[in-house]
Write a protein that binds this DNA or RNA. Structure first.
Length: 364
DNA sequence: GAAGCGTGGTG
DNA sequence: TCACCAAGCTT
């Protein structure tokens, strides 16, 4: 690790480079703290290109903090469907409700006030405070950690809190009055020049004269990150239970993986056809026909689902709805019109392979 | 400090 | 095909 690297020489070249090279992104049209906030939360662990259409749609549907605070959970999750890390949007709504209750609907204007809100940590608070209010605080994300570790050839593990704290402290000392532009410039250099995958574009980099990783050709070993531990594997059997008009969905629990989203009923393990039929009969339904569906795999950050599926036609799926035991059970089942399923319910992409079959195998 | 929490792109 | 990666936060 390199001590006392003087970063102050980087400030002017960085700001100059940013003014000439910054991208024209939807959330850079103004400095409305709500706009900055929503974009920053969406961008957590998520690529810019993926975020753009979600951001546009979200702002159209929920143009103000108050609208976000008052939105029902299902439509809120639908707006977030496919972005992942769904607690982000739940926490954001909680924070919006706090802002309405305690700050008159206006985002608090200091780092300390902002970081106290639900779902907002050191990075996001720094980004909002600096970009919207020009408070002189750093916003240290993965881009910033990468470019700092390279420019100073620092092999500290950037995932460790101690490393983040040290780099945050270094940046605090050189933070110019244009804090918002400077923080965004650091991230923009990381996103466009000092890229994480592949060859960094050192010829375009405003830091090249100062960069130790460039000088010593060590960029490909930096930054240092601890390896993720291997994913656990889970085997599942997914069931498409439907008659001509409706299909059985299930609302996931309010905590844990994919909390609050809707899914196709699924059971741990690989069931035989007989076991799958027994499961369906156990739900007071009369199966008429069963067909094996293709296997599928879905990779989460920490789990891998290996799935097999069955399409099961049942007689009069409405009898299912009338069974009171089902509503008392641990699982929250519901019947959904086939044509509305994917349009109105937030269903995780893990089920995409099977959701494709929902409309294709009607018996009418 | 470590684990839990999604998804899609990339070499 | 697969490991790695992307503007992290919460518990």
């Amino acid at each position: 690790m390199i001590e006392n690297t003087d970063l102050s020489v980087l400030v002017e070249p960085t700001l100059t480079w940013y003014e000439a090279n910054k991208r024209d992104l939807p959330w850079r049209k103004d400095k409305d703290p709500y706009h900055i906030w929503v974009s920053e939360v969406m961008l957590q662990q998520t690529r810019v290109e993926a975020v753009i259409p979600y951001y546009e749609r979200f702002m159209t549907a929920l143009p103000t903090i108050e609208a976000l605070a008052k939105c029902q959970e299902d439509p809120l999750l639908k707006l977030w469907e496919g972005l992942g890390y769904y607690n982000r949007v739940r926490n954001m709504q909680k924070a919006a409700q706090t802002i309405c209750a305690e700050y008159g609907g206006q985002m608090p204007q200091t780092y300390d006030g902002i970081v106290a809100l639900s779902g907002i940590g050191p990075y996001t608070a720094g980004a909002i405070a600096s970009i919207a209010f020009d408070e002189r605080v750093p916003a240290v994300d993965g881009n910033v950690l990468r470019i700092l570790s390279r420019v100073s050839q620092d092999d500290s593990d950037i995932l460790k809190d101690a490393t983040k704290k040290r780099m945050t402290a270094q940046l605090s000392q050189i933070m110019p009055k244009e804090a918002g532009a400077f923080n965004q410039a650091l991230m923009e250099i990381g996103a466009l020049v000092c890229i994480p995958n592949g060859q960094p574009k050192c010829d375009l980099c405003p830091w090249q004269p100062f960069c130790l990783a460039y000088k010593n050709d060590t960029y490909d070993r930096l930054p240092v990150k601890t390896k993720a531990k291997p994913r656990r594997i889970e085997e599942k059997t997914v069931l498409l239970i439907q008659d001509g008009q409706k299909i059985v969905l299930r609302k996931r629990p309010s905590k844990g993986l994919l909390a609050g989203l809707y899914e196709l009923p699924n059971i741990e393990g690989y069931l035989t056809e007989e076991e799958a039929l027994a499961f369906v009969r156990g739900q007071n339904l009369a199966p008429l026909q069963i067909k094996k569906l293709p296997e599928a795999k879905h990779i989460f950050s920490h789990i891998e689902w290996l799935m097999q599926g069955f399409l099961i036609q049942v007689a009069d799926v409405d009898s299912f709805q009338q069974d009171e035991d089902l509503s008392k059970g641990p699982q929250d089942y519901l019947l959904v019109d086939i044509d509305k399923t994917r349009k109105e319910y937030a269903i995780p992409s893990a089920f995409d392979k099977y959701a494709e079959f929902i409309a294709l195998h009607r018996m009418d």
